[in-house]
Amino acid sequence: MVEIPAAAAAPHLESQEEYSDHAVLHPKPRLREKALVKSQRPTPTDDADMIARAERAVDALAPSFGKWMAQSAATLLESVEGFGEAGPQSPEEVEALHLLAQDVRGQAKQFGYTVAAQMATGLCDHLAHGEVDVPMVVVRRYAEAIASVVRAEVKDAPNDIARELVRQLGVLSAEFRSRRAAEKAQAAAAEAAKDNPGETE
C-alpha cells in the first residue's frame, strides 16, 4: 500500500497530532489571506468597469436632480425674501445667505444646470465679502431668476430667454458696482478735501 504524506492528504491542515484514541487537527489560518484578497486594490480594468458602473448609477439618479435643484433654489429665494429690503444686518447673516447661494451653485454645476450655475456665481460674488455690495432688489432678481430657470428645467445656454436673463443680471450687477465705486471715490475725495482744505481751493 502506498503511504500518502499527511501534507498532501490534507493540504488545508497546518498540522495533525495523533493520539491513541483521537487526533487533533490544526487547520491553516486562512482568514488573513482571504481578507487580503478582499482589500486588494482593483486593477485598471476593474477601475474602468467601476467608473462606468458609477456613472450609470449617477445617471439613474438624474430624475431627482430637478427636484433637488428646485428645493435648493426655493430655499435660497425664501431666505432672500425673509431678509426683506433691508437685507442681512450682520456679516454672519450675509455669510448664511452666501452659503445658500454656494449650495445652489455647487449643485447646479454638478447636475449640469449651467445657466443656474452662472447666475448663482454672479450672486455669490455679491455676497462673498461679508456684505451685500448691491441693493437687495438685485439679490432678489438673482434668486428669482435662478428659481425660474430651475423650475423651467433650463440647463444649458441655448435657451434664448435664459441667456438674456443671465446677460441682464450681469448688466445690473455691473451698473450697481460702477455706481458704488463712483460713490466710494466721491466719498474718499470729500474726506481728502476735509483733511486738506487748502489743496482743493
Binding site: A54, A57, D103, G106, Q110
Partner: peptide, 11 residues
C-alpha cells in the same frame, strides 16, 4: 446639501 452626499455615496 443632501443631494451631493447622495451623489458621492452613489459614486
Amino acid at each position: 446639501t443632501y443631494a451631493i452626499v447622495r451623489i458621492v455615496r452613489t459614486l
